[in-house]
Amino acid sequence: MAILKSSCNFDNTTDGFVCRFTGVECWNFDDENKVSALRLSSLGLEGQFPRGLEYCTSLDVLDLSNNNFAGPIPSNITRQVTYLTSLDLSYNSFSGEIPVGIGNMALYALYIQHNQLSGQIPREFHGLLRLTSLNVADNRLSGLIPLFLSKFPASNFAGNKGLCGPPLDDWQLIN
């Protein structure tokens, strides 16, 4: 946490000062700095899913992995981070169900492994047409894996005792 505190000087009011904070990446558009990525992995952050992300209107990448976040992933996550292409919430203690709205995002990568998520993988994930990386391993998920996700390796679904269906069926017999 000291790394994050040492980089956040809110007394500085120069244009783009936030872009010098640890884990904040920006791009410049029309002489205006826009936050494009928050890479806040392994900073000892804790609490619930951060509020106020809707003000980062150009946010493309959100990485909160390897921290101590807990509680549900907000059901309105798609309104908070509308334009994400990469979402990494892995290795935290998020709980509850996976919000169905995630299926409406334009994600290329979704990492939510090693949490305490429960329920089924939403059928709405069929809307994730650009998805090239997915990992939901080691949660408390149950039900049938949607067929359109069977292209991902079985190991990316492992550790969910209630999950079944391809690609897990043969893999579970071997392991």
Rank of each mutant, 00 (worst) to 15 (best):
A158Q: 08
G162K: 05
R51A: 10
P167T: 08
N175V: 11
L134H: 13
Q172Y: 08
L117D: 02
F69Q: 03
I174T: 06
E97N: 03
Q116P: 00
A109H: 02
D88Q: 04
L173Y: 13
L149T: 07
L107G: 09
N135F: 05
Q120L: 03
N28K: 15
G71I: 01
N115Q: 00
R51T: 06
E46F: 15
S155K: 11
G71A: 01
P166M: 03
L117C: 06
N115V: 00
N66E: 15
Q116N: 10
S6W: 09
Q116I: 04
G165E: 15
N104E: 06
S65D: 07
D169V: 09
L128E: 13
E97P: 00
C26Y: 09
W27E: 13
S75T: 11
N104G: 12
R123Q: 12
K5R: 11
A154D: 15
F17D: 05
R123I: 12
L64I: 07
I174L: 05
N68R: 10
S150W: 01
E124S: 15
E54G: 03
A37N: 10
K151E: 07
L134P: 14
P146W: 03
P99A: 08
C164T: 13
G16A: 09
S6A: 14
T22V: 06
N68L: 15
G162Q: 04
S93P: 00
L134M: 12
I112V: 07
N12V: 12
S93N: 14
I77D: 11
D63E: 09
K161S: 13
L89D: 07
N67L: 10
N139F: 06
Q113M: 00
A137R: 06
G23H: 05
V81I: 11
G52S: 14
V81F: 04
N115R: 01
N33E: 14
T132Q: 11
N9V: 10
A137Q: 11
S142V: 02
Q113A: 02
L59R: 06
E124G: 13
Y108T: 14
L45H: 05
F148E: 14
S90T: 02
D11P: 01
G23L: 04
N92A: 12
Q80I: 06
